[in-house]
Design a protein around this nucleic acid. Structure first.
Lengths: 251, 251
DNA sequence: GCTGCGCATTTAACTATGACATACCAAAGT
DNA sequence: ACTTTGGTATGTCATAGTTAAATGCGCAGC
């Protein structure tokens, strides 16, 4: 379970970044794109199940997700795992390791992923020459913090049913903004163990909880994944108001 | 319970910032201090119990904590509260609201606090003219994210005893770096309701858990607060390796 | 075609935690 | 000086959630 080496080959030049086709993402100007093209050292293609970033590693790169699903997680010495967040196209990953010198979480691919690879030691250059991009990076860090705040609220204070409902409403809205929802329905490539590790519950209890959501028609479990069917019901069960749909930065 | 208005009066000019006396904080050069002096619009003095920042508010400021204790929290509509993190001297607060336009958490003072007030609309200036300070801000955002990751791991996967042990070891180490630990002991100004809201537990169960830690000599409960007595035991119980002691940025 | 594995699902027993109630104490308010 | 309030502590019972074990199914490997 080891990540493929980043390749210098480019399926996607920055000028034709696949994220640009989503109205959810703000636009970069020519100079920024030119700089990003140099900042980018290549692309990483990761198979489902591979570990993209390893806790404790001193990574020389940070990455933007171009396609696919992944998750961020931390583990305790005895193997207990907490999934911190899910990773979707447009997300910047590895910033903590770049800015703070050591990754304290890992990232694993849930589906085949393509990631844009940036070189950490060019980050100070970016901050000097492109304050707007630096501001975008700070925006991305603040956004991750804001998501973590709501996730921590959920795990700490919501009931199991509310937690599950919030999780799928949250994933649904993030996926919607990158056009993954088809006909009002989203397929999420996770097992119930993933869901359990995200909600802070056992697999058995998670199964019971997901059955409750299914019986209400909010979602349907498949093998190794589920269809999210009713965003509104999930928001209502969890008492969550949703994410902003305003266009947002990416790099 | 409303915050006192920020005063333009300065107990602490940036040249004589009280945080500078701690070796834990990196040093700013003269130009940076000069800019920060203009970026700073005043100081906020908050009494214990006051709400420094309110969820939903559109704050025009961000703040550095100069002294005192506080906490960041989110609430659900029915009043359930999750304390996300504690706030200590050197912490930057309000960045989410500054960068993302709306605070989605609140901050309350646990003790009298003094905060340095910065003006949000000068942030782009800072990013343009002082990339090193901008980088420091990104560092601070990443650090908060990293702390949230560990807290979420704790709430999601640690037992009640491990959570409490981790919390006090974590608070102890943060306080140690700003010289709040005297004779190997730290007094933390929290009630058991605060601890319960941090650990995702009820007050009753928190009391039982804290009694276990007390019976092992790791801490001693006072009225409205506790003494943290044995950092090493707490780290051992929680299986936590501790924080970096490397000098860190602040603004 | 058979076997083994991963995953989903279920059940039963058990434990951690919550809810509720009560008692006590110190400090603030009257 | 007395009362009220907030906070700590403890006991009991109920429930959410965990653990262990079992079963079934689909798919990959042989």
């Amino acid at each position: 379970m080891k990540p493929k080496t980043a390749s210098a080959a480019r399926q996607y030049p920055c000028e034709k970044c696949p994220l640009q086709r989503f109205p959810h993402f703000q636009v970069h100007d020519k100079e920024e794109i030119s700089f990003l093209s140099e900042f980018k050292t290549g692309e990483l293609v990761a198979d489902a199940g591979t570990t993209v970033l390893v806790e404790g590693a001193n990574s020389a790169h940070l990455f933007t997700v171009l396609s696919g699903w992944g998750f961020r997680y931390k583990t305790l010495d005895d193997g207990r795992r907490q999934i911190l967040n899910y990773v979707l196209p447009g997300d910047l990953i590895g910033l903590q390791g770049s800015v703070m010198k050591e990754m304290q979480h890992s990232i694993e691919a849930l589906s085949p992923m393509i990631l844009c690879v940036f070189q950490r030691d060019k980050l100070p250059n970016l901050f000097r020459s492109f304050p707007n991009l630096a501001y975008d990076i700070t925006w991305l860090a603040s956004r991750e913090e804001q998501m973590l705040d709501e996730i921590l609220l959920s795990i700490g204070r919501r009931t199991a049913l509310e937690r599950a409902a919030y999780l799928f409403a949250f994933i649904f809205q993030r996926a919607k903004s990158v056009d993954m929802v088809k006909n009002g329905k989203l397929t999420v490539p996770v097992t119930q163990q993933h869901v359990a590790d995200t909600l802070g519950l056992s697999v058995v209890h998670t199964n019971k909880t997901l059955r409750k959501l299914a019986s209400r028609g909010a979602l349907r479990w498949l093998d190794r994944g589920c269809d999210v069917l009713d965003e509104q019901m999930l928001m209502e069960i969890s008492g969550w108001q949703g994410l902003s749909t305003a266009p947002r930065p990416y790099i």
